[in-house]
């Protein structure tokens, strides 16, 4: 922990998304945090589990809500060099979804592997 503020240290960060978009502000706030984190050249991982998998569901249309549809922004992450996106298989299945329902390239992994991956992180932020 001594090297927390050492600019040269690259840490493994994981942002864990567990909430559906639009019902609360969490999904959008995490997405903004992820975009900002890209400026700090850290090893950023993004995980989608539980209702969080809905954040990257294809075909979102928020016109009738009068809300901004921020789902296209997930497709911009690649340009920010954030390419480690993981989705939990069980969470997809529980919601009747498959990888084909998702709008970005992701790695679908099991809950057990997701747990293992979390164990490899230096910093985890769940929302």
């Amino acid at each position: 922990m001594e090297d927390d503020f050492d600019g040269g240290t690259v840490k493994k960060f994981m942002f864990v998304n567990r909430k559906a978009p639009y019902g609360t502000i969490y999904a959008l706030e995490v997405l903004e945090m992820v975009l900002i984190s890209a400026a700090f050249d850290q090893d950023v991982h993004l995980a989608f589990l539980d209702d969080g998998v809905l954040q990257i569901k294809k075909g979102q249309d928020t016109k009738d809500l009068g809300h901004k549809n921020f789902s296209p922004t997930y497709r911009a992450l690649e340009g920010y060099d954030i390419e480690k996106l993981f989705v939990e298989q069980e969470s997809l299945e529980e919601r009747g979804l498959t990888a084909a329902d998702l709008m970005v390239d992701v790695e679908v992994i099991s809950r057990a592997d997701m747990a293992k991956l979390m164990g490899e992180m230096d910093v985890i932020l769940t929302a």
Partner: peptide, 8 residues
């Protein structure tokens, strides 16, 4: 529930 499912 989710926590218990992801704790090593």
């Amino acid at each position: 529930s989710s926590c218990l499912g992801h704790a090593n």
